[in-house]
Structure formats: structure tokens, C-alpha cells
């Protein structure tokens, strides 16, 4: 039973990472932009959940409103800033998005302070399933897992079965070709970017009741998402899925074996992948 709980935790964490990493990897793959501020949107989502839940009294309202707000901020950032970055050297992308992180963190500090805030689990899901006499599993975590699976399925469907998905796939493999197919590139880019931001914020909103909201939460998870993208291979949604689950497991196994060193387990997995296949598991050299 103990192992079942750990497995469920690993899958839940892995799927949450996938929501973030899928946007990150698509934005890399299609626009060629490295966005350090991706994690900031996770934080934005979490703080929106905290703020909106307090305001409306319901997380069920906070989640959709939060997503819409994040999507709008994403669109705004894309047109105002990121659209000018696509052809620039990675160095400047790193620098600018580093600046954005500072701005987001300080705005968060000014608006919400530097304390840790909890977000209540909605009453509907606020109970646990007893597994043995002493062990039980919170329903909210199962809910998160299910929702993430749903979103992942939706993403898979959109990318592999729809016209816009075809454009996205064309964009990751060959940008000029996509342009020559008559795809409206600026619109596609803006859309992909905003969806990526919305996904990251969504991950933040639903994770908020589990992890609570705290300063720097976006950066912590951003670096883990980089590990996921490196392992999965840039631009690959399937790679991101496999890598997310692998990292979820590595993290959980690490916590069980040696809690102090659990953070290191994740990076060791990356080190092994780099030795074996530096371009990521989904991309051939």
C-alpha cells in the first residue's frame, strides 16, 4: 500500500510537470525561444488561485478565471516582448526573461508579500480514501492526476488530429516549410505562447492547494522542467511526457530512499541521459 501511494504521488507530480514542460518544449521547438519566465507563470497561476479563491470564495471559480487571465497576460507579453525575441541570440532571450523573472517576483512581493499562503481544498474533494488502518490517500491528488491526464489527452488530440496541430508539428520540424504552407505564423506563435502560459498557470492553480503558494515557487519548478525538456528532447510532446513521468518517479524514489538527497536524484537521471543521448530521448542525433 505504501508503494501504491508513492506510485500515485510520482504520477501526479510527473503529470503536473508535464503541463509545464509541454508548453516550454513547444515554445522552444516552434519559436526557438528559451523562456526562463515560464516558471513565473506557474507562480502567477498559484497566486491567482490564492487571490481569486479568497475573492470569490471558490476554487472552482478561481481556476477558469485564472486561466483566462494568464492566457491574456500571455498574449500581451507575446505581442509586446517575445515577438521581438524570436530572431535574437539565445543569450539575449536568457537575459530578457531573467529580467522578467525579477519583475514578476517583485510584483508578487509587493502585491502579496513574502509569506507562505495556503489555499483550501474545495469541500467537495476534501477527504481521503482510507487504504489501510494508518494510510490513506487524499482525493484532491487523484483529482489533480485525472485533470492533468485529461489535459494531456486533449493536447495529444489537438497536436495529432487537428489542423492547428498539424501546423504546430510542421512548425517544430521546419519553420520555413510551415510558412510556405500559408500558415499565419505570427498568429500561430502568439497562440502557442499564450496556451503555453495558460498551461503553466493552470498547473499553478491546481497545485496551489497541495503545495501552498510561496515566493520563488516558479523558479524551483522551472529548473526541474528544464531537466524534463533536456531528457525528453526539445519540441517533443511525447518525449516531455515520458521524461515528466521519469522525473516524477526519480523524485519520489529519491524521497523514499534518502529524503535529503531526493533533489539530486532528478539531476542524476539527466546526467545519465546526457551520457547516453545528448539530444534527448525523443530526438535522434
Amino acid at each position: 500500500m505504501f508503494y501504491l501511494i508513492q506510485l500515485l504521488n510520482a504520477v501526479q507530480y510527473g503529470l503536473l510537470l508535464f503541463l509545464l514542460a509541454s508548453g516550454l518544449t513547444l515554445i522552444f521547438g516552434i519559436m526557438g525561444v528559451i523562456n526562463l519566465a515560464h516558471g513565473s507563470f506557474y507562480m502567477v497561476g498559484a497566486y491567482l488561485a490564492y487571490w481569486l479563491a479568497k475573492l470569490t470564495g471558490s476554487l472552482w471559480l478561481a481556476i477558469p478565471i485564472g486561466i483566462v487571465i494568464a492566457f491574456a497576460i500571455g498574449l500581451l507579453l507575446e505581442t509586446a516582448i517575445f515577438s521581438r525575441l524570436y530572431k535574437r541570440d539565445h543569450l539575449y532571450q536568457v537575459l530578457l526573461t531573467f529580467g522578467l523573472i525579477l519583475i514578476f517576483e517583485e510584483l508578487r512581493s509587493i502585491l502579496f508579500g513574502d509569506e507562505v499562503h495556503g489555499v483550501a481544498i474545495p469541500a467537495l474533494l476534501d477527504y481521503s480514501i482510507p487504504l489501510t488502518d494508518t494510510l490513506s490517500y487524499p482525493v484532491y491528488r487523484l483529482f489533480v492526476t485525472a485533470v492533468c491526464l485529461g489535459v494531456a489527452g486533449l493536447l495529444y488530440f489537438v497536436i495529432h488530429k487537428t489542423r492547428i496541430g498539424m501546423m504546430i508539428r510542421a512548425g517544430t520540424s521546419n519553420r520555413e516549410m510551415a510558412a510556405s504552407l500559408g500558415v499565419n505564423i505570427p498568429l500561430l506563435f502568439a497562440l502557442v505562447f499564450a496556451v503555453g502560459m495558460a498551461l503553466a498557470a493552470f498547473a499553478g492553480t491546481i497545485a496551489a492547494p497541495i503545495s501552498s503558494v510561496f515566493p520563488g515557487m516558479g523558479n524551483q519548478i522551472l529548473i526541474i522542467c528544464f531537466v524534463v525538456v533536456v531528457i525528453g528532447g526539445i519540441g517533443s510532446i511525447n518525449g516531455a511526457m515520458i521524461a515528466s513521468l521519469a522525473i516524477g518517479c526519480a523524485d519520489t524514489i529519491g524521497k523514499v530512499i534518502a529524503a535529503e538527497y531526493s533533489a539530486i536524484a532528478v539531476y542524476l537521471v539527466m546526467a545519465l541521459i546526457l551520457l547516453w543521448r545528448p539530444q534527448g530521448i525523443a530526438n535522434k542525433a
Binding site: 516582448i81 525575441l85 537575459l95 530578457l96 529580467g99 525579477l102 519583475i103 517576483e105 517583485e106
Partner: peptide, 12 residues
């Protein structure tokens, strides 16, 4: 850092 961050964004 708000000012510093804005400055960085502006410079780039």
C-alpha cells in the same frame, strides 16, 4: 529588483 528587471528588459 523590479527596477533592475525593467532595466534589463528595456536594454535588450
Amino acid at each position: 529588483q523590479l527596477v533592475m528587471g525593467s532595466l534589463i528588459v528595456m536594454i535588450v
